[in-house]
Measured scan of single mutants.
Amino acid sequence: KYLVLALYDYQEKSPREVTMKKGDILTLLNSTNKDWWKVEVNGRQGFVPAAYVKYL
């Protein structure tokens, strides 16, 4: 498993997404889509914009 760092705040806009705050450390679950990565944060799984996170 990889960890990624939230570069920006992101507010979920659909039930498939998750909210994150700048500085959050997220567990990367799937990065096959170049635009949306599946992550786990605070016990929830969902998608965030790939451009908003970077590998640690």
Rank of each mutant, 00 (worst) to 15 (best):
K1T: 13
K1H: 14
K1M: 13
K1F: 11
K1E: 11
K1D: 11
K1I: 14
Y2C: 12
Y2E: 14
Y2T: 14
Y2R: 14
Y2P: 14
Y2M: 12
Y2N: 13
Y2L: 14
L3Y: 15
L3Q: 11
L3D: 05
L3C: 09
V4R: 02
V4M: 08
V4N: 01
V4T: 05
V4I: 09
V4A: 10
V4K: 01
V4Q: 01
L5G: 04
L5Q: 14
L5W: 08
L5D: 01
L5H: 05
A6T: 03
A6Q: 01
A6I: 02
A6F: 02
A6C: 09
L7A: 06
L7M: 15
L7G: 03
L7D: 03
L7E: 04
L7Q: 05
L7W: 04
Y8C: 11
Y8I: 11
Y8T: 11
Y8H: 13
D9M: 03
D9H: 05
D9Y: 04
D9W: 03
D9K: 02
D9P: 06
D9T: 05
Y10S: 01
Y10N: 01
Y10R: 02
Y10Q: 01
Y10M: 01
Y10H: 05
Y10T: 01
Q11V: 14
Q11C: 10
Q11S: 13
Q11E: 14
Q11L: 13
Q11Y: 15
Q11M: 13
Q11W: 11
Q11P: 07
E12H: 09
E12Y: 04
E12P: 15
E12A: 15
E12V: 06
E12F: 06
E12W: 05
K13G: 08
K13W: 03
K13M: 13
K13I: 07
K13Q: 14
K13F: 05
K13P: 04
K13S: 13
K13H: 09
S14R: 09
S14C: 07
S14Y: 07
S14D: 13
S14W: 06
S14Q: 08
S14N: 13
P15L: 10
P15M: 08
P15F: 10
P15R: 07
P15Q: 10
P15K: 09
R16F: 15
R16A: 13
R16V: 11
R16G: 15
R16M: 13
R16P: 08
R16W: 15
E17D: 06
E17A: 06
E17P: 05
E17S: 06
E17C: 06
E17M: 05
E17Y: 05
E17G: 13
E17T: 09
E17R: 04
V18P: 02
V18A: 06
V18N: 04
T19V: 03
T19F: 04
T19I: 03
T19N: 07
T19A: 07
T19K: 04
M20Y: 02
M20I: 15
M20V: 10
M20C: 06
M20W: 02
K21F: 11
K21Y: 11
K21G: 05
K21Q: 10
K21I: 08
K21T: 10
K22V: 08
K22H: 07
K22A: 12
K22G: 07
K22M: 08
K22P: 04
K22S: 08
G23D: 06
G23L: 02
G23P: 00
G23H: 05
G23F: 04
D24N: 06
D24T: 07
D24P: 00
D24R: 02
I25R: 06
I25M: 08
I25D: 01
I25E: 04
I25C: 06
L26G: 09
L26C: 10
L26Y: 10
L26E: 01
L26A: 10
L26N: 00
L26M: 14
T27F: 13
T27D: 05
T27Y: 12
T27E: 12
T27P: 12
T27G: 06
T27W: 12
T27R: 13
T27I: 15
L28C: 08
L28N: 00
L28W: 02
L28R: 01
L28I: 06
L29C: 06
L29R: 04
L29F: 04
L29P: 00
N30H: 08
N30D: 15
N30P: 03
N30K: 07
N30Q: 14
N30Y: 09
S31W: 14
S31N: 13
S31L: 07
S31P: 08
S31A: 14
S31Q: 10
S31C: 10
S31E: 11
T32G: 12
T32Y: 11
T32F: 09
T32R: 12
T32K: 14
T32C: 11
T32E: 14
T32Q: 12
N33T: 07
N33V: 05
N33F: 07
N33Y: 09
K34F: 08
K34D: 10
K34Y: 08
K34Q: 11
K34M: 10
D35R: 11
D35G: 10
D35N: 13
D35S: 12
D35L: 13
D35Y: 15
D35Q: 12
W36R: 03
W36L: 04
W36P: 00
W36K: 03
W37D: 00
W37E: 01
W37V: 11
W37T: 05
W37M: 05
W37A: 05
K38M: 15
K38A: 11
K38G: 06
K38L: 15
V39P: 00
V39Q: 00
V39N: 00
V39Y: 00
V39A: 01
V39D: 00
E40V: 08
E40I: 07
E40L: 09
E40T: 07
E40Q: 09
E40D: 09
E40M: 09
E40A: 08
E40Y: 07
E40C: 09
E40G: 06
E40R: 08
V41I: 15
V41S: 13
V41C: 09
V41G: 10
V41W: 08
V41T: 11
V41H: 14
N42D: 14
N42K: 10
N42R: 10
N42F: 08
N42I: 04
N42L: 08
N42P: 06
N42V: 05
G43N: 09
G43D: 10
G43W: 03
G43I: 02
G43L: 05
G43Q: 07
R44K: 13
R44H: 08
R44Y: 06
R44D: 05
R44N: 09
R44E: 06
Q45M: 10
Q45N: 08
Q45L: 09
Q45V: 15
Q45R: 12
Q45P: 07
G46W: 02
G46V: 03
G46C: 02
G46E: 01
G46S: 02
G46F: 04
G46Q: 02
F47E: 05
F47T: 03
F47P: 00
F47C: 09
F47Q: 04
F47M: 09
F47D: 04
V48D: 00
V48K: 00
V48G: 00
V48T: 02
V48Y: 00
V48E: 00
V48W: 01
P49E: 01
P49V: 03
P49G: 01
P49N: 02
P49R: 03
P49T: 01
A50M: 05
A50L: 02
A50K: 08
A50T: 06
A50Q: 06
A50P: 05
A51D: 12
A51R: 14
A51L: 12
A51K: 15
A51W: 07
A51I: 13
A51N: 13
A51G: 13
A51S: 14
A51V: 11
Y52S: 14
Y52N: 08
Y52C: 09
Y52W: 06
Y52D: 03
Y52T: 08
Y52P: 00
Y52R: 06
Y52H: 07
V53Y: 01
V53E: 00
K54P: 01
K54W: 08
K54I: 15
K54E: 15
K54A: 15
Y55I: 15
Y55C: 11
Y55K: 14
Y55A: 12
Y55N: 09
L56R: 05
L56G: 05
L56N: 06
L56P: 06
